[in-house]
Design a protein around this nucleic acid. Sequence first.
DNA 1: GCACTCTGCAACCATATGGTTGCACATGAG
DNA 2: CTCATGTGCAACCATATGGTTGCAGAGTGC
Lengths: 102, 102
Amino acid sequence: MSKTTERAVVDVFFALGDGTRLAVVGRLGAGVALSATAISDGAHVTRQAIAKHLRVLEDAGLVTHEKRGREVLYALEARRLEEARVFLDGISAGWDRAIDRL
Amino acid sequence: MSKTTERAVVDVFFALGDGTRLAVVGRLGAGVALSATAISDGAHVTRQAIAKHLRVLEDAGLVTHEKRGREVLYALEARRLEEARVFLDGISAGWDRAIDRL
DNA sequence: GCACTCTGCAACCATATGGTTGCACATGAG
DNA sequence: CTCATGTGCAACCATATGGTTGCAGAGTGC
């Protein structure tokens, strides 16, 4: 379990460790599901770049998608954020405990 | 402020988004300051690889170093972890609030 | 049906990343 | 002094990463 969980946490941190992706998470953090096109409006990168980032975020479990007609809406998955938060919380209290808490 | 802080948070997440680095943080999380050589003992990578990772961690503010005779000891900086934790904590409650909390 | 919009895929590119080896330079131990 | 240890720097390498452009396909609106 610990190995699997640890990898998941790494993926989450990796996903958050990019400015563009963190900005996407921020926009989705408002609570409204958005399409890749909607997110790329106002962003300084292409829609395809945003799409790639959304894939990374989804692979990390931070985001889920839902087909809504012809567009695909992405929403934030708060659970994973919480997991990462708890993980960080535990590190200062000892590594093993950090993993056990999950 | 928000821009600067946001970048710092990205750096922290980026630093944690690598398995080797997360393992290093884990070992330092025990509370004992260790040298790069000590950390690389038992790790599956070279001392120089660990040294590079320690530099990344230090640039992110997650680690501090102290010259101790001929060796250099690295210790975990819990404050940055806490910052990242608080940041994550705030995202689900809204992006702006997340930045303000720092 | 037809045009428009949003999506998905593929090719491609420059640079960053993680890792290695090799060697020179301090510093502590004998 | 001499030798072993720990560090730092540089070159180098394969692959991952972040980004682009171009185009084909699926739904929607009229």
